[in-house]
Design a protein around this nucleic acid. Structure first.
Length: 526
RNA sequence: GGCCUCAUAGUUCAAGGGAUAGAAUAGAAGUUUCCUAAACUUUAGAUCCAGGUUCGAGUCCUGGUGAGGCCA
């Protein structure tokens, strides 16, 4: 019970208040607290949540935003449900894609460096686009001279040069490695800014350049155990036809690793790094459903105990009305730009309403950001993760109705009440003296508040921030109706007034806790 | 071709096999001498099609149709 800061018993409710605002209340009878593992930490195993996992050749976009928000939120929810959580990502920092950016930078860069107006990830992304442009021009030129399209695509000089660069990188060529380090460092600086603005963070970074050779030993080992088998050409496979899947390659004939080999190795590496891990959550788009099905099955067959607790947090793509986002075609919604847009929209709406006279300019800017990001985050998180999201850039994200700002607004109103309640409303009041005559709205609010702890558990079990978002919306809707129908500070009955203030305060606390799980901040005024 | 996911008001989303399928938004109509109207109240509007399981199906099963994805 170390985490319980205080408790009280009110008419058959045992209320446990846990440090950061969570509380449990047990209805009617005092239950054995061990039923609630999260209250006393029955399950000591940790869980590692992976999300973001970008490539280092281009900036983060709307798809990454969904990935990050989901992964971060699920990690927070698991924490709230009592798990120890490690947040991580694996950065795809090697391969032909980054060589393409590097090559284009060498050719066209003229020593350009990131600046105030151009973040490092944007700069590198620009050269990736520049590569693609040059590549296409070369192909067109070759085709015009009579080469076949497919042949030209394979033998364009700039592509061959990029491949040569990759070989040099793998061989440890000093110059290539130095350039690679320089450009990746720019990208990480850029990413850091985006993550900070988005409000997500990580406990541990894994880099593919460190992990791409992992997994080979495990495959060799599994080969001995008979989990895998070797084909005549020397490639190693696993037969999953008994499980309703097909055969899958785990090591190429030339002995090089495929993605599966790496992922096997990385999973094992993580458990080596953090021996208390009892499971992992991978936040990866649903296009990789099959990959993870196979990965988890392989790890089970290899006999790892933690393989039973692997979960692919599979989410739908974020599509535009025009279809899929493609960075090479310039049809991506950039993460930084979108966050700026949202902030601007919040500013515009806020100015029209004009309620912030007493705020300084920097306080205002901070608030616009909070509201704009609240709108964006809520918009994305309220949707069931597995459903795909259609994002129309021309139709801006709502600020009214079932939205983040709606809930933030309610929170701000509650804070306003608490500021004005200049009497002592801290002491416990005996519900029994008035509970027979509770207003229907008060009863509904009590019911709704009480659902919070189990909603957190449910959201953790289902890896679904959407459940938290929907719960919070219901609560807020209920509160607004209450707020409209009854007078809180104007109530003449002293005890009843205190009850209403306490109810309001509690609703505010639940909103703040719930939104914290979604990574959304709440304002004192708006 | 094989496999996976999704399909609910005009639109965007809800709904643990359980009562009359909830919201929001857009539409129509109202509420501000009173705690913040980014709010509240009223109104109209939906389960892709055909079978099946069940006392009971938006939810489970089979077959279609449509959208997206993975593999070859």
């Amino acid at each position: 019970l170390a985490e319980v800061s205080h408790f009280n018993v009110v008419k058959g409710f045992l209320n446990l208040v846990i440090n950061d605002g969570f509380y449990l209340n047990f209805f009617n009878e005092i239950m054995d607290v061990s039923d609630y593992g999260f209250a006393i930490g029955v399950d000591k195993s940790a869980i590692m949540v992976e999300y973001s996992s970008p490539n280092t050749n281009k900036p983060l976009h709307l798809g990454h935003i969904r990935n990050n928000l989901l992964g971060y939120s699920v990690a927070e929810i698991l924490k709230a449900s009592g798990k120890k959580v490690y947040k991580t990502q694996i950065i795809n920092d090697r391969g032909i894609h980054i060589c393409k950016s590097m090559l284009a930078y060498e050719r066209f860069g003229h020593g350009e460096a990131p600046s105030e107006s151009l973040k490092g990830d944007k700069l590198v992304g620009n050269y990736y686009v520049a590569f693609d442009k040059a590549y296409k021009e070369e192909i067109a030129l070759m085709v015009s001279k009579g080469a076949a399209q497919k042949e030209a695509e394979k033998t364009a000089p700039i592509l061959l040069e990029a491949q040569e660069m990759l070989r040099k990188w793998e061989a440890g060529d000093k110059e290539v490695v130095a350039l690679w380090k320089k450009m990746n460092a720019w990208v990480y600086d850029g990413f850091e800014v985006t993550y900070k603005n988005l409000g997500v963070d990580f406990d541990k970074f894994y880099y593919e350049s460190d992990t791409y050779l992992l997994g080979k030993d495990v495959v060799a080992d599994g080969l001995k155990k008979g989990v895998f088998y070797k084909k005549e050409d020397g490639s190693v496979w696993i037969d999953l036809t008994d499980e309703g899947l097909d055969e899958k390659i785990v090591l190429r004939a030339d002995g090089t690793a495929v993605y599966m080999t790496q992922d096997i190795g990385t999973a094992i590496q993580r458990v080596t790094d953090y021996p208390d891990i009892g499971g992992m959550v991978y936040t990866v788009g649903n296009e990789q459903d099959y990959h993870f099905k196979v990965l988890f099955l392989i790890l089970k067959k290899l006999g790892f105990a933690w393989a039973e607790s692997l979960y692919h947090l599979s989410y739908g793509m974020v599509d535009l009305p025009s279809g899929k986002m493609k960075s090479r075609e310039g049809t991506v919604v950039d993460a930084d730009d979108l966050m700026v847009d949202m902030t601007r929209t919040a500013e515009k709406i806020s100015k029209e309403l004009g309620k912030l006279e007493e705020y300084t300019e920097s306080e205002k800017q901070q608030l616009y950001r909070m509201i704009g990001l609240g709108a964006l985050k809520y918009y994305i998180l309220k949707v069931d993760p597995k459903k795909r999201i259609l994002f129309d850039p021309d139709e801006s994200v709502d600020f009214q109705g079932n939205t983040g700002p709606f809930i933030q607004y309610t929170y701000a109103r509650i804070q306003s009440i608490l500021r004005k309640a200049d009497f002592d409303h801290s002491k416990a009041i005996g519900l029994h003296t008035i509970d027979e005559s509770l207003h229907p709205k008060e009863k509904e609010l009590l019911k709704q508040i009480q659902l919070f702890p189990e909603t957190v558990q449910l959201a953790a079990e289902n890896y679904s921030p959407a459940l938290i978002a929907n719960y919070t919306y219901d609560l807020v809707k209920e509160f607004n109706s209450f707020y409209q129908q009854v007078s809180i500070l104007g109530e003449s009955n002293e005890e009843r007034k205190v009850l209403r203030v306490q109810l309001s305060k509690k609703v505010g606390e639940v909103i703040r806790s719930a939104f914290k799980l979604l990574g959304i901040e709440v304002p004192e005024r708006m």
